[in-house]
């Protein structure tokens, strides 16, 4: 039942090329997915600013438009304001735990260095081992890097908190039960001319097409994420045949082959959205002209727009918090490994110190 433990072992050049190829792949994937998500955010933002689709549903001027009700139910189902409130409260604790691990690790190094220096001061040339300060330079540099990362995380926490503060009032309103939500939205006289008018039908159709474009992106995202490839074999062959690996060229060519069609479909999709959004804006202008605009209608519309935005903000804040929580948890694992490195080296130095002391006392 022999298993080759070294089956996955490859020459250093291949290892480095595979690592570089994976970075390029991740960059490509992130770029594609990033541009799709950005397009969805843009789309949602534009629609919210036009009070769409709520304006098309709001024929009574009184009941909560269906799309707003759906947004409300979606947030309530995700735990409403309380769930993000709680998670935001947890962030400082997660930060603190990470700081403590880092601080303890660096203190171990500081304490051992202080003792080492003390003994060097006492024994001078006879204390002839490398100073701890020199040995610990790389670890301290790593520790410094971790500090910078934590500083950036603190800033990110602040951004999340500010987003929350800016939107919590509207989010709270959107999370209220239907009757309270309805009561909080000012009434307006319904625009009777809206029903059956052509522009309403045109807008509805354009919005439906836009939904389709958004759904297509979800599918595309899944497909992009599911692409896998492994260039190890190709790199091994190149190294054996040519003595060198032209990683950039080989990876670019593989990426083109694997993601070329996805890239095209993404670009097509984004162009389609752009077209639809400008068509919608033209239709919306016609639509606005049709409506009886009075101050009650405008006030009502303002509130509906804010409620639609509140939904998008909630989704964004939720996602930010999830990202932050994962970040801190992942960082803890990494810092614990760092802590082990520090305690290992300090333990070795202590053992060495005790032996040196014994020798010096004997001599």
């Amino acid at each position: 039942k022999f298993t080759d433990l070294f089956e996955k072992m490859v020459p250093m050049a291949v290892q480095q090329s595979v690592s570089a190829a994976n970075s390029r792949k991740a960059e490509t994937v992130n770029r594609l997915i990033g541009s799709m998500r950005e397009a969805t955010n843009l789309c949602n933002g534009v629609l919210a600013s036009l009070n769409l689709p709520a304006a098309l549903e709001d024929l009574s001027g009184d009941a909560v438009p269906q799309s707003i009700l759906e947004k409300s139910r979606a947030l309530i189902q995700q735990g409403g304001l309380q769930s993000i409130e709680q998670l935001i409260k947890d962030l400082p604790e997660l930060l603190q735990r990470n700081r403590e691990i880092l601080d303890e690790s660096l203190k171990m190094l500081d304490d051992e260095e202080a003792t080492d220096n003390e003994l060097r001061g006492k024994f001078n040339q006879r204390w002839n081992r490398t100073p701890s300060g020199d040995l610990y330079k790389p670890l301290r540099a790593e520790g410094n890097n971790f500090r910078n990362i934590l500083d950036k995380a603190v800033q990110a926490d602040q951004v999340v908190r500010e987003r929350y503060t800016a939107h919590c009032e509207m989010i709270a309103l959107l999370c209220k039960p239907e009757n309270e939500l309805s009561a909080a939205i000012p009434s307006a006289n319904p625009a009777k001319t809206l029903q059956g008018s052509e522009v309403v039908n045109v807008l509805r159709s354009q919005l439906a097409q836009l939904d389709e474009v958004k759904r297509e992106r979800e599918v595309l995202e899944g497909e992009v994420k599911s692409v896998t490839f492994d260039l190890t074999a190709k790199f091994l062959t190149a190294l054996a045949q040519d003595g060198a690996i032209n990683e950039e060229v080989m990876t670019s060519s593989e990426l083109d082959a694997r993601y070329g069609s996805h890239n095209q479909r993404v670009q097509q999709n984004l162009r389609r959205q752009e077209e639809l959004l400008s068509q919608i804006q033209v239709s919306h202008q016609e639509f606005s002209a049709l409506k009886q605009s009075n101050s009650e209608a405008n006030t009502r519309e303002d509130v509906l727009k804010k409620l639609a935005s509140a939904h998008d903000s909630y989704i964004e804040i939720s996602s930010n918090i999830k990202e932050g929580t994962k970040f801190y948890n992942d960082l803890t694992e990494i810092l614990l490994k760092f802590q082990n490195k520090c305690s290992d080296i300090v333990f070795a130095r202590k053992t060495e110190r005790d032996e040196l002391l014994k020798e010096l006392q004997q001599s």
Binding site: G324, L331, I334
Partner: peptide, 16 residues
């Protein structure tokens, strides 16, 4: 993404 990336740090590059 709002938070810094930990990708570089996840791989322990030091070969002892």
């Amino acid at each position: 993404s709002l938070y810094p990336s930990l990708e570089d740090l996840k791989v322990d590059k030091v070969i002892r």
